[in-house]
Nucleic acid binder design. Sequence first.
DNA 1: AACTGGCTCAACCGCGAAAGG
DNA 2: GCCTTTCGCGGTTGAGCCAGT
Length: 322
Amino acid sequence: MGRPPCCDKVGIKKGTWTPEEDIILVSYIQEHGPGNWRSVPINTGLMRCSKSCRLRWTNYLRPGIRRGNFTPHEEGIIVHLQSLLGNRWAAIASYLPQRTDNDIKNYWNTHLKKKLKKHQAIGAIFAPPPPSESSSIVPTTAGASHHVDLHHDIIGSKDYNFARPAACSNPADEVTQLIARRRSPFAATDGDSSSSSYASSMDNISKLLNGFMKSSPPPQNDATADIKPSATDINPLLSLNHMSGGSNTLPPFSDDMLPSPQPPQQPALTMGHRGYDNEPKQQHHQQGPLSPIEKWLFEEAAEQVVDLMDLSDACCSVPMMF
DNA sequence: AACTGGCTCAACCGCGAAAGG
DNA sequence: GCCTTTCGCGGTTGAGCCAGT
């Protein structure tokens, strides 16, 4: 027969994760690396479904996640990729390694959709009705205040340098913020609620662990090293992501390495949660390398951004909000 | 001060595909 | 090849927060 059941539904805890559960989960992953989720609740004693553990890790606890407001660059990328790929959030997320698909999906649903509608109304003045919703998005939304050349922007954008957000430079503060954030997810982390970057790097978490779990072996130079063998074997650049949370300097990224958005089956930049799992089966779900047509569309869309921005700036007194 | 409706986002649900036996 | 289980993804929900009344 197949594998044994991942978890029985009886006694499975649901709802918000507690800090204690987070610590247990992170501690376990620190030791064993992500993956084999079925064994996680069994070995940790967490009364959580393996699925829930995986979700918690990938969407919240894993290192390298950037939280807080999306930058205009990121917004632009999401809008364009959504227009190209549709609601394939995992594929879109692979272009924004610091963001989770869940985050992108939420952001799209709560922010961008509304903005698009608003701007579509405005853009309709300048553009004929598009044949489809997705294609309509590009010209009208792109008219917002994105960088003139989005494609070039992506290349040069700091959002894509995999560097850790600068907001939390003091590890001790990060731990405090981590705990505070857990208790009050909406609380500002550093007094700047506009760019609250959640202290979720493995570095932070390991420090947190030190406080809570004295028995845990102290992390070495970089706590992320504990999970590197499994993670970076799969995804060499994942280590960059881990390192970005510490004091290590990143290897130089040449501009042309970055934005041809990395297709998921090229693990290089697919450093999201999918990068940990090394699952060939996911490939069918996600985009392969951009086809020439897609690349062209991508760049074409960026061009349209320019045109419409110019139009908008020149002709429209309505301020573009993003 | 209390109520209410909207907003945000973490988490859950259900499905499809892949993998193991 | 079939069946069962695991995993990942996209859609949806609901608890908590906040602003307006």
